[in-house]
Simulated assay, not measured.
Amino acid sequence: MTEDDIDRAAAYLHEQDFIKGVRTAQTRGPVRVELTSKGEDCVEQYGGNVTAYKQGGQGRGDTATFNFGPIINNGTMAVASEGFTQNTTVGVDQAGVAKLVQTLLDGLDKLQLTDEARTSARAELEAVQQEVQQPQPNTGRVTAGIGRAVNYFMEAGKPVVTAAFMLIASGFGLPPAA
C-alpha cells in the first residue's frame, strides 16, 4: 500500500466514525489514530470487517459466512443447494468457555509470564468470564478476549503456549503427555 492509500483509508474510517486522531493539513485522514467505540465494536463483533459491520452482519448476493469456534447446530443443514434461506443459531457454549477461562485463571501464576503480561492476560480472561455469565454473551467479545489472552502467551514464547495448553488439557481431564 502506498502512503496515499493509507491516507485515503484513514480518511474514510474517520468519516465513518471508526477511528479518531490527530490530523494535519497535509493529510485527509488522521495520522495518529485510536479506535472509537464504533471501531471497537467493529473489531470485536466482525473482526475489523467494516463492510460486514455496516451491513449488520448480513451478506449480499453470493456472500458466504463461515464461523469457526463454539457453534451450536441443532437442525438440518442445506448443503450445495440453491434458492433457499437458511437460519442457524450460533452461540457460545457458556459452560465450556467458563471452564476453559477458569482453568487458565487458576494456572496463570504457573506460566512463565512477565508481571505485565500476566496482569494483562488475567484482565482479558476475567472480562471473558464476565461476558459468558451474561444471558446472551457477545460471541465477538468472547473470541476477541480469549484471542488477546492467547497473544500474551504467544509473545512469551512456545514453552508458555505449550504450558497453557497442558493446563487446559489437565483441566478437561486429559492425562499428561507421556
Rank of each mutant, 00 (worst) to 15 (best):
D4Y: 00
G107T: 11
V33W: 01
L174N: 06
T36Q: 07
T36W: 05
V160I: 01
T76C: 06
V43F: 03
L111H: 12
V92H: 06
E40L: 14
A25G: 12
T143Y: 05
D17M: 05
V43I: 13
G91V: 12
F68G: 15
K20C: 06
G157N: 04
N138Y: 00
I6Y: 02
C42G: 06
G21N: 11
M154V: 15
L113V: 06
G173D: 00
Q58V: 15
G61L: 12
A64T: 15
D62V: 11
A163I: 00
I19A: 09
E82L: 15
A64S: 13
G96W: 06
R28H: 10
E15M: 03
A52H: 09
T63V: 13
M166L: 05
L13Y: 10
T139N: 02
Y12S: 12
A178C: 01
G83T: 04
H14G: 01
D7T: 03
G147C: 04
R8A: 15
N151G: 12
F165S: 00
I19L: 07
R148V: 10
R28P: 00
A164F: 06
V50N: 08
A164L: 03
G173H: 05
I168E: 02
F18Q: 05
Q16I: 02
G69E: 11
G48R: 05
A169G: 15
A64G: 02
R28L: 10
V43K: 05
Q129E: 11
Q94A: 12
V142R: 03
P30H: 03
L125S: 08
K110M: 10
A98F: 11
A178M: 02
V132P: 09
F165W: 07
I19V: 15
Q94C: 08
L35F: 13
A64Q: 14
K54N: 14
T76L: 15
L105D: 10
V160K: 04
A164P: 11
Y53I: 04
P30W: 04
L113R: 08
R60T: 09
I72H: 11
Q136L: 09
Q26S: 07
N73K: 14
E126V: 06
V97G: 08
D93V: 10
L105Q: 04
G157Q: 04
A177W: 05
N138V: 08
A80W: 12
E82Q: 14
G107F: 10
I168F: 01
A25F: 07
I6C: 00
A80F: 13
C42M: 12
I72M: 09
T114G: 11
G75S: 15
E124S: 12
F68V: 15
T162A: 08
V150C: 02
M166S: 11
E126P: 03
T162C: 00
A25L: 12
M166F: 00
R60D: 11
K110S: 15
D93E: 14
Q112V: 04
Q16F: 08
V22N: 07
M154W: 12
G29L: 07
R118A: 13
R118P: 11
R122G: 07
Q26T: 12
P159L: 00
G96E: 10
G69F: 04
I6P: 00
A121S: 02
A9C: 07
N138W: 01
S170R: 09
